[in-house]
Design a protein around this nucleic acid. Structure first.
Lengths: 345, 345
DNA sequence: TTGTATGCGTTATCAC
DNA sequence: GTGATAACGCATACAA
């Protein structure tokens, strides 16, 4: 049995009023309307099981209660935390999130962005993977608020970001203060500013103590980037292994992110070296899982979930006051000491 | 500068044709239209930077190119894998996914479902947390395909499911075959059928070898359920600890899911017992992370990502042929042997 | 091959 | 207070 979709006209004619009245009663709880009519209409709504078709409403108001979120890949362990922050902040707001993966493909990212625009979403949260987002300027984003996370965009937008440089710096200082001098840095290809900034900060922190990264201790994977957690885990394994093959292996390894750190720890343990007694491992992210492994990972907290929360806050503020000035909120790195880094000497 | 939104009328008048023609050229690559006109219209589209407003199209065709996905909570490590499967299958299809968390709240789940319907999504993938989904019957889901994953729904729908009972059974048989007799089962509250089925299967498998779960070895957490990975991790820790305090601790522990297994391993290691030499731990899920920890987790593979893939396949098949009969695809449990279970005696 | 006209389900502006 | 009716942007049946 195919039930026909019941529209506002059906309920109007069912109780002998105009659609205008029905619309008012359905939407405007406090529009002046005789209580007799209100009751009758509500009864009809109930009886016919009328549910407004949002597409009609959206078309009329030219705006959908949706926010688009474009991230590189949900398979990357980092992003579920972010999405959780976004979702949790959106609860009760009536907004839905349209989740898009860019798969680290700038072309695809642009396509998703345009598609979101065509769907008339009210806001877009974008973690871009492109170093040229100038195309955004040529696109008409009037009326939709975009907030950039992680990487900034070419066009000025709302923004919530993290001090990667400071995080890298903090990592270096911590390792040095823990007595380490033979320190390595391992990373996936430095294709994003946020990665380069981590390295820059790390280098600066090391230099303050007269330590330089060398060909031996600076290890950047040259594998093509596939964005799976497993990929990062694997290069973490591989790079740590290479380090252990050195004549004078480092006593501490800073990993560009937690996933790689987990890989490194795994390889180290396989190799028979104890973490942190023999070699210390420091991560970057503070993923949910990082505190659960053994040894629990010492890492730089990137406030992932919080970033999602604040992004939504910016969005909602901008919905309430579209002409408010652009804002950018910055998160500061925090060191989370756990078990994977030990004092040296 | 606020640019006015350019509609199909703008481009029509801009190049002096009717909107019908524009519409045809924009949508129907092979609609017969003079190449001269086609070129002119395409030029205008380009020049004016016209992007069709999907809301208009959707309203007209009464269907949005969106599929809703309702899951308990993206924070649960299990679901990102599922979502990844869904997203990856949807790439290039033009569909977007509307991601909804039910937060394990049946009321909220229903609300989300209804909201998705009102948005005229084309399909809904639902992992229900409710044991009474009879309300679906009273709702008009005509024209939208729903596929149930994990738990079945009251109403018959497409379905992709997993043999939890078989998984539990397989777990028991494996542990027994590995020489274990003192075997424990730890779990979060058995609030979902899928959990109860795991236990039932496990029990059956044990019984075949004359082993019974006792008050000591059957441990169900009585904590209120918060759906965070950390929560499951924590009760894994706690329950494993309790087991170790027994006069005769078990030699093997089957955990209702990997997250709890990771918690158990962590507690065991803290407690100074070696996994798997002293105590074996068997998980259930095969999350991405499970192979990365030390010891790598031996577990029952739940084909999480595959479930997402197949759900989308069902959806797309149903889009192509709406009158096709209801289908249900079943995944069989697979044992993934890694390092956390050792042979006994 | 192209254009005209209508309707998709709402909301909102005007009358009454 | 309530009711016609005109948009919203698009696709399409029907004419031409």
């Amino acid at each position: 049995m195919t039930r026909k979709k019941v529209t506002i006209y059906d309920v109007a004619s069912h109780c002998g009023v105009s659609v205008a009245t029905v619309s008012r009663i359905v939407n405007n709880a406090d529009y002046p309307v005789s209580s007799e009519l209100r009751a009758r209409v509500q009864a009809s709504v109930r009886e016919l099981n009328y549910k407004p078709n949002m597409l009609g409403r959206y078309l009329k108001s030219n705006r959908a209660d949706e926010v688009g979120v474009i991230i590189p890949n949900i398979s990357n362990f980092y992003y579920p935390d972010l999405i959780a922050g976004i979702n949790d902040s959106l609860i009760h707001s009536g907004y839905n999130v349209l989740l898009c993966n860019s798969y680290r493909n700038p072309e695809y990212e642009k396509k998703q962005f345009l598609s979101l625009l065509q769907k008339q979403v009210k806001g877009i949260i974008l973690s871009t993977v492109s170093d040229d987002t100038s195309w955004i300027e040529e696109v008409n984003t009037d009326g939709v608020t975009v907030v950039a996370i992680e990487q900034p965009l070419y066009t000025p937008t709302h923004r919530v970001c993290f001090n990667y440089y400071g995080g890298g710096y903090m990592a270096a200082r911590y390792l040095v203060e823990m007595g380490h001098r033979e320190i390595a840095f391992i990373s996936a290809p430095l294709t994003y500013a946020s990665r380069r900034q981590r390295l820059d900060g790390f280098r600066a922190g090391l230099r303050e103590s007269g330590i330089e990264l060398t060909q031996n201790t600076l290890r950047i994977s040259d594998f093509e980037l596939e964005d799976e957690s497993s990929y990062e885990f694997n290069i973490g394994c591989r790079l740590a292994e290479k380090l252990m093959r050195l004549d004078a292996p480092p006593t501490a390894i800073f990993c560009i992110n937690d996933m790689m750190a987990i890989g490194a720890i795994r390889a180290l343990q396989n190799w028979g070296v104890r973490v942190p007694q023999d070699v210390s491992v420091l991560g970057f992210d503070n993923m949910t899982i990082s505190k659960m492994i053994t040894p629990a990972l010492t890492t730089i907290d990137q406030c992932t979930r919080e970033i999602g929360v604040r992004a939504i806050e910016l969005l909602q503020k901008s919905f309430e006051n579209p002409s408010a000035p652009l804002e950018t909120v910055r998160f500061k790195p925090k060191l989370v000491e756990r078990e994977s880094v030990a004092r040296r000497g």
